[in-house]
Structures are given as structure tokens and as C-alpha cells.
Write a protein that binds this DNA or RNA. Structure first.
Lengths: 196, 196
DNA sequence: TAGAAAAGTTGAGACTGTCTCGATATCTTT
DNA sequence: AAAGATATCGAGACAGTCTCAACTTTTCTA
């Protein structure tokens, strides 16, 4: 579905493409090791290019992170679509939510970037986010039709829950994130409609 | 309950105390305006002291933020205790949760600091957090006894939910945070115990 | 394939911010 | 009022972000 090779915008000169990829590779390594707060200058240094070159490819830290995330997001959306075939609609939804949370947790520190990307049209990630949201929407719609979740649950609710739970897990401990996700999902269920 | 005057550790020299207070005041203003990412150097500048003086009072950004938050936290704990008198235990809990979320939202960007402070014994805020957690625990316990929330709901769950919802509200829109909180609280309810 | 045009790279440098520390100034105490 | 304890000062060592004009490499085209 995806070559694994990062996707620069258009045709690039050969040397430019080489640098682009080296930078992205270094960034991925730095990210895996330190989260989102690595030094951009350091990335350039380790990739063996001048920092001006770095900025030529990625105007801001955000641009870089977005390039890093795009592929993952698309995969997640695909997983969502597969789960539409799950026996229980609610279970499909819950399974997907857990997978999404793991995804977000791996990219620790990026929850904020993700949340903002959905709303920001200028974000590179916007398209990918929309796809994820669409996948979520389908899962939610199916569960709703089956009467397994409340009628007022929306895809953005799901998206927010997943990201918030991932965030909570990052701040305290991963199990806390999972608990939160579980409670939230239960809050989505039809049986939870506490009339007051 | 609280003089409103920030609380330096011990007896300080008069000039030192004056500087301490000016710094804290500037920090509060900067915080209100830009969230947690203001420049420490700038605070010193605006307070009219050398930056070395700043660092003499607050070793790290965190120290400063903690000083800024302590009082608010204590207030929140007190509110929790008052709400123990609410007619409906669940409503008392929910009301407090909403208040706590507002509190956290005002101090936008500090959710992370709060979450970590609970677990970090070296934090100035640790005591205040414990107090908040204790207040939450009492509210949860009361609701649990009344059979209004699941038996496995804990104060840390509540704490995590509130902070995560506040975070979500910061990232997208405040209403999204409130929705998340509502779903989470419903997930806490006894009726939501989806056996599977 | 040479030369021109396009595309990309370079690294110095202008800023800003974090943090340290010895010299200096200011309180407090006796 | 002098000594001693406390603070403040501000220069300076670093690191990071970002820009830009000069320069180099690639690609295009005749």
C-alpha cells in the first residue's frame, strides 16, 4: 500500500532527495529516542548537512513531524476499515480505539500535533487525519446503527478520547491511559445513557 | 483561607522578598497571556531584575510554575470537601470534576505538570496534589457507597479523566473537553458496567 | 555534450533563550 | 558601625532557531 519510502512533494533533484531522506531517517531515530523535543540543528548535524539545508526541506519542526507521521496515519485508517468487518460493532470500535491509542503512544508527545492537525487545513497531516476520522466515523456509525452506542457519539468524540487517553498514559502510566479509554468507551455505550 | 500572598519558603531578606513577589506577579501575567511557554529571561526583564536573580529564586521553569499553582490547588481541594454535602453523590462528583476541569483549563498547558506532580515526591506541588486527590477520593468513595459509580473507579481515574479532558479541550475546543468529561463520567456510572 | 538555467547547499551571523558564577551591593545583627 | 550573612548583578559560555547571499551541483536543451 505504501513503499515505506517517505514521500517528498514533487520531483526533486537527486541530491536533494538523498538529503531529505537522510534527514527524515535521523529525525525518526531521534524521535524514537527522545520524543518530540529533539534539536533540529542536531538532526542536520547528524545527517551531515548544513542547517540551512535542513530548513530548506522542513520549514518548521512541525513540518518535519508531519512528514514523519503521515504514513502511520494512513495505516491506521486502513485498520479501521478492516475492523468494519468485526462481528460485534462495538468490539470493532473498541479494538480500533485501542490500536489508535497505541499508535499515538508510540509517537509520544505528538498527541497535540494530531489534535491540531484535524482542524488545521494547512497541515500536511490534515488529509491523513481526515482519513482516520472517516474510518472512525464509519465504525461509530455502524455501532450506532446497531444500537450499541449512544446516538450522540461522534467520530470527533472518539478521536478526542483516544488522544486524551494516550496523553494521560504518557503523563502518568500507560495502564492509566488504558483505564481512561475503557471508561470513555463505556460512556459511549447505549446502556450508559444516564438520564437525570 | 489563604492570604493571596505567595508563600516563600522561609524568612527572606526584605529585598529578596520584594523581588520574589514581583517575579511571581510577572510570571502570572505572562502565564495568563501566553500559557506555560513564556521566556524566563523575559520575566526577569519585566520584573526589573537581573536574570541571575531570577534563577536565584526559581531554579527551573518548573519551580516557578509550581509556586504559581499551589494556592489554586488548595482551593480546589476545599471545594471538593464542600461538595461532599451535595444531595446526589454522583452529582457532587460530577460538579467537582467540572470545576476541576475549568481550573486546569485556566492554567492551560499545565495539565502535564499536574499529572506528573502527583507521582513526583520532589515536586513542590506534590502535597497540594495529594490534597486534591484526597478530596476526589472522598467524593468517589461516597458515590461508590451509594452504588452510583462502579466499584473499580478510583480517585486517580477521576484525576486522569479531568486532566485529560482539559487537555483535549485545549487542543481542539473547550466543548470537546466537556463532552469527553461527560462521557468519561458516564463510564464511571454503575449502569455503564458493560459485561462482556 | 557544453553552456545556461534551475535547484539546492552552505555556513556565517543575528537573535533569543537557558543557566552559571565571581564580583559587588544590600540587609541584619550584635 | 562593622562584620557576616544574604542577595543581586551582569557578563559570558552555550545551545537552539532561523535567514540569506554566495556558491555548487544537477538537469535541461539546443
Amino acid at each position: 500500500m505504501d513503499t515505506g519510502t517517505p514521500t517528498p512533494r514533487r520531483r526533486m533533484r537527486a541530491d536533494a532527495r538523498r538529503n531529505y531522506e537522510r534527514l527524515l531517517a535521523e529525525a525518526a531515530a531521534a524521535f524514537a529516542e527522545h520524543g518530540a523535543d529533539f534539536s533540529l540543528e542536531g538532526i542536520a548535524r547528524r545527517a551531515g548537512v548544513a542547517n540551512g539545508t535542513f530548513y530548506g526541506h522542513f520549514a518548521t519542526r512541525r513540518t518535519l513531524l508531519e512528514a514523519l507521521l503521515g504514513d502511520r496515519m494512513r495505516t491506521l485508517a486502513a485498520t479501521g476499515t478492516e475492523l468494519l468487518a468485526a462481528r460485534s460493532p462495538f468490539e470493532g470500535l473498541a479494538t480500533w480505539a485501542r490500536a489508535a491509542m497505541v499508535h499515538t503512544t508510540i509517537y509520544r508527545g505528538l498527541g497535540a500535533a494530531l489534535m491540531q492537525a484535524v482542524e488545521d487545513e494547512t497541515s500536511e497531516l490534515h488529509t491523513a487525519c481526515k482519513a482516520v476520522l472517516a474510518a472512525g466515523e464509519e465504525l461509530v456509525a455502524r455501532a450506532r446503527t446497531a444500537g450499541e452506542v449512544r446516538p450522540d457519539v461522534t467520530a470527533p468524540d472518539l478521536y478526542a478520547l483516544v488522544n486524551a487517553a494516550a496523553w494521560a498514559g504518557e503523563q502518568s502510566s500507560p495502564p492509566q491511559g488504558e483505564r481512561l479509554l475503557a471508561f470513555g468507551l463505556d460512556g459511549f455505550r447505549t446502556s450508559a445513557t444516564g438520564r437525570e
